[in-house]
């Protein structure tokens, strides 16, 4: 049991946990941020995707201790001042979600994808980039549509260079 400190959604947090605690469980149980989900046990479904130091990662395959000192953004940190993030808004407008369980991971993945590809995203790239995210409800059709729409929307906003 050790105290793990990190920045989550812009806030400094610290909590005691076992060394074997996964980041996703640290977020869900120690910090009560239950928006990040667990959908598989083999690092494949992507329901657990968060951003660590600006890059999308699978929080089910990272120890909380490994993430100590890093800056984490979860789905709860995406909307600002009650306004949906453009990716969230695009998912709503395009019916990019049904049961909502894979959705947080999809949104975090989409934002990371758009950050890396900007307006160069096309349908084939979006589908390839969704390799690590499984949805059972939507057939991906409207997820792809949502991400392409969000990429267009966000093109107007200059993205920070990597």
């Amino acid at each position: 049991m050790a105290k793990v400190k990190m920045t989550v959604n812009g806030r400094q947090v610290g909590s005691d946990c076992e060394d074997r605690t996964l980041l996703v469980h640290f977020l869900r149980e120690n910090l009560a941020l239950t928006g990040t989900h667990v959908g598989c046990d083999t690092t494949q479904c992507g329901a657990c995707v968060v951003h660590m130091d600006g890059r999308s990662v699978k929080s089910c395959t990272i120890l909380a201790a490994q993430a100590a000192g890093s800056s984490i953004t979860t789905i709860e940190g995406m909307a600002k001042d009650g306004e949906l993030h453009p990716v969230q808004a695009a998912f709503k407008a395009n019916h990019g979600l049904q049961c909502g369980f894979c959705t947080p991971g999809m949104v975090m993945t989409a934002d990371d994808m758009i950050r890396r590809h900007g307006a160069n995203l096309d349908e084939a790239t979006v589908r390839a980039e969704l390799d690590g995210n499984i949805c059972r409800c939507t057939g991906y059709h409207n997820i792809v549509k949502s991400i392409l729409a969000a990429a267009q929307e966000m093109r107007a906003v200059p993205q920070a260079a990597e």
């Binding site: 690092t43 992507g46 995707v49 990662v57 993945t109 980039e129 390799d131 690590g132 995210n133």
Partner: peptide, 9 residues
């Protein structure tokens, strides 16, 4: 290799 998230780690 893997997927984007795996490649990040």
């Amino acid at each position: 290799i893997g997927d984007p998230h795996v490649r990040h780690m």
